[in-house]
Design a protein around this nucleic acid. Structure first.
Lengths: 233, 233
DNA sequence: TTGATTTTGTGTTTTATAACACAAATGTAT
DNA sequence: ATACATTTGTGTTATAAAACACAAAATCAA
């Protein structure tokens, strides 16, 4: 179990704009009402249609926000890393969750009642601006994603996803191995394609010397090449 | 040219949450710094990559927010009707516009410097909450749209679009004719398909007695049927 | 009014990607 | 270690939708 001090260290080191927006007394309120939750690999943190009540802060691990669609198809919408916040959108929209969140790997979350957060927002404009900024960036990203997913071809979409993973989770010490290990299915769900096509396209990237693959370990060896494929479609 | 009083009437009659969030002195600041702009049919209001500086309020007419993608393809992202606001997302995100806005028909806009809006936000939490709420709803909608556009088949996507148009702009006095007259191309760009496919699918809807078409006039005669097609995919 | 341009409509061909089917490899539980 | 489930990999087939090509109609301009 992490200690409160660990939380403060993580959050402040990560220059969390949210935490920095708070006044000392507000920070106290948050830490006093803050709960840790541990999630196992693949465990669902919240699910579509549930009522949003908490703000989640990912402290350790990696999680995916996804939406199930037609048939058994799933679209991964966003990825989160420490220290990022989620769960607030549906609360602010006054509607049930439209997507679900699950842990990619064992994860530790900080949980704070949204009611409390909203109260603080009402007295702290910096915090309000934090959420306005976050929401605005997410909305821009979502609009851009629509183009990526609908207009790019399979290779473009997969290349895009690999670059997104690199961007989001970075590389291992070798500077080439993606620091996240996804199943082919997750990769497919991120890229709007079937699992077989994710496998096949990944293979073709290996053939084209863009990446190296060893099980779930992916090494990016020609980022520029991937970028070109992603851009062109 | 519309008079100031007309503005106040329109805005307050439409129970605009934004306007209602303002204190009297703030309302004065807004009306004092408010400018009308008239746009012709198909005229661009702002374009991708430009720097956002204003909040736009659609007072009269209809506009589309769209994003150009690969090749000549365009995706219509959102539709606006009076009295709705746009143009603020990119400003809040501190980034250039990622989409463009153009008038479907002759439109009147209210234009307010975002700098001013931001100043007011910093002193008025109700206004901050207005934007948090708007952004949250838009983000939920954008996430849902991703599923619609990527996972539904052509018929489902077009049905969805027709229902969206009905929802957004309503019907003429006959209660069946859509109160918006789009080109087949716009319809296609709304539904992520080619123009020929929009034409063909529209035809097939006529054959299936779901709609009636006369030029750009579309009558919805089996909304339930469309809803079923849209849901199934 | 006439000619030009844009929009709409339709048939045909091509292609990207899903769907299906199954084998091999890997992981997991007993 | 053994059986069982899941994930990965590969070939084949089916199909939805784009691409192309062109005619007819409608709209616009001079």
């Amino acid at each position: 179990m992490l200690k409160k001090s660990t939380l403060e260290r993580i959050i402040s080191e990560d220059l969390s704009d949210l935490w920095n927006a708070l006044r000392p007394e507000e920070k106290r309120i948050i830490t006093d009402n803050f709960k840790y939750e541990h999630y196992k690999k693949n465990q669902i943190i919240y699910a579509e249609n549930e009522t949003p009540e908490n703000l989640f802060c990912l402290i350790e691990g990696k999680v995916k926000m996804y939406k199930s669609g037609i048939g058994d198809r799933v679209q991964i919408l966003r990825l989160y890393r420490p220290v990022q916040y989620f769960g607030y959108r549906a609360y602010f929209a006054r509607e049930p969750y439209v997507s679900s969140v699950a842990a990619f790997e064992p994860s530790v979350l900080g949980v704070i009642p949204m009611k409390l957060v909203e109260e603080i927002i009402r007295n702290n404009n910096d915090l309000a601006m934090f959420f306005i900024h976050e929401l605005s960036r997410n909305l821009g990203g979502s609009d851009t994603k629509i183009i990526n997913l609908t207009q790019k071809h399979i290779r473009g979409r997969l290349a895009e996803s690999l670059l997104l993973l690199a961007d989001n989770y970075g590389y291992e010490d070798d500077e080439t191995t993606l620091k996240i290990y996804l199943s082919r299915e997750d990769l497919a769900n991120l890229s709007n394609m079937t699992t077989s096509n994710a496998i096949r396209t990944l293979m073709s990237f290996v053939t084209d010397k863009l990446i190296l693959v060893d099980g779930r370990k992916i090494k990016i060896i020609d980022e520029q090449g991937l970028r070109k494929i992603s851009k062109f479609g």
